[in-house]
Computed example of a mutant assay.
Amino acid sequence: MAQQHDITSPQPETRGRLLRAALDLFTQRGYSATSVREICAAAGVTKPVLYYHFKSKEGMYRALLEEPFCRFGAILATFSHPEGSAAQQVLDLCDRIFTLFSEHLNVARLMHVIYYGPPQGAPFFDFEVFHRKLHDLVKELVAAGIHKGELRPGNVEDMSWVLIGTLNVALEEQLCQRRPRLDRAGLGRLIRLVVQGFAAMGHADARPGDEPRDGGRAVSGAGTWGPGAA
């Protein structure tokens, strides 16, 4: 049995251990079916220690989601004043989101359980607002590309859905228990292929050799905890 730590002798890794225990249990058993007692037992702490760090089970759930979604919002914010070609902007955006997703696979699995699964009493978390923000940003990048003559005129909504759908296929591949058939490089190839199909005749900005300009590093956000990639 894990050694239990009381609140009078706080351990620097206690918060992270509690979050990892809660994440595993929420994903495997569901939010409602997981008790505070079980989280404490898995983390090797007492209830007062959990309440000291998070106040409640709901506080742990929100902490698990808020850190990666804060970073997601920070990534989108970097494209508020885009520079460079539309093709490069779309490639950079998808690459950064893929990297962030890969760093938080266990949280992504929890999100899918909550978002796509049956109701299980989890506190409300507005996942939709992040979907809308991503969709709006992709539409802005596509519309800007058309306006600058980089992309041929077309239905911006449909073109955006094609790009987001391609990104989602690559992200969902990472959630499979088997080895993913699409990796970061594969996503880049697919996005470049799509953008080349959208490109205006004779425009060179969507050439196959383009690479993410920052090497795919996700934007850092507030918070010190992040569950490791599965």
Results as ranks from 00 to 15, higher is better:
103 E>R: 13
119 P>L: 05
46 T>L: 08
92 D>S: 14
103 E>F: 00
85 S>C: 15
99 T>R: 06
55 K>P: 03
71 R>Q: 14
60 M>H: 04
62 R>T: 07
88 Q>A: 15
100 L>A: 13
97 I>Y: 05
102 S>I: 03
112 H>K: 11
102 S>H: 03
75 I>P: 03
103 E>D: 06
42 A>G: 00
77 A>F: 10
120 Q>A: 05
111 M>Y: 04
112 H>V: 00
121 G>S: 07
93 L>S: 06
51 Y>V: 10
88 Q>Y: 01
79 F>Y: 14
118 P>R: 13
82 P>T: 11
51 Y>P: 01
101 F>Q: 13
121 G>Y: 08
71 R>E: 11
81 H>E: 14
108 A>D: 03
62 R>Q: 09
120 Q>C: 12
111 M>S: 09
104 H>Q: 10
119 P>R: 00
59 G>M: 02
106 N>L: 04
81 H>F: 09
120 Q>D: 15
91 L>R: 11
77 A>L: 12
54 F>N: 07
88 Q>W: 05
103 E>L: 02
59 G>C: 08
63 A>T: 14
111 M>P: 01
115 Y>G: 01
85 S>T: 15
91 L>S: 12
57 K>E: 03
51 Y>A: 08
98 F>K: 11
110 L>H: 09
107 V>S: 06
61 Y>T: 09
112 H>N: 09
115 Y>F: 06
48 P>N: 10
103 E>G: 13
66 E>W: 02
78 T>I: 07
48 P>M: 11
94 C>F: 04
122 A>T: 05
54 F>Y: 12
60 M>L: 11
50 L>Q: 11
80 S>W: 06
75 I>R: 07
115 Y>I: 01
122 A>C: 08
81 H>Y: 13
60 M>Y: 02
48 P>E: 15
70 C>V: 10
66 E>P: 03
103 E>T: 09
67 E>R: 04
66 E>G: 01
51 Y>S: 09
100 L>T: 15
65 L>Y: 06
96 R>A: 14
45 V>S: 11
62 R>K: 06
55 K>Y: 10
44 G>I: 03
113 V>K: 15
60 M>Q: 05
87 A>Y: 01
46 T>I: 02
88 Q>E: 15
64 L>P: 02
59 G>A: 01
121 G>Q: 07
97 I>P: 09
67 E>V: 12
87 A>K: 08
93 L>W: 10
123 P>M: 01
102 S>K: 12
89 Q>W: 03
72 F>Q: 13
65 L>A: 08
74 A>R: 15
68 P>R: 07
83 E>L: 05
120 Q>H: 07
51 Y>E: 12
49 V>M: 10
65 L>W: 01
89 Q>M: 08
59 G>F: 04
103 E>C: 04
61 Y>K: 09
81 H>C: 13
61 Y>A: 06
68 P>Y: 02
108 A>Y: 02
61 Y>V: 04
50 L>V: 11
102 S>E: 08
69 F>N: 14
86 A>R: 08
46 T>A: 12
64 L>V: 09
52 Y>D: 08
55 K>C: 02
118 P>F: 01
82 P>M: 06
53 H>L: 08
46 T>C: 02
99 T>V: 07
90 V>R: 03
66 E>A: 06
82 P>G: 11
67 E>W: 02
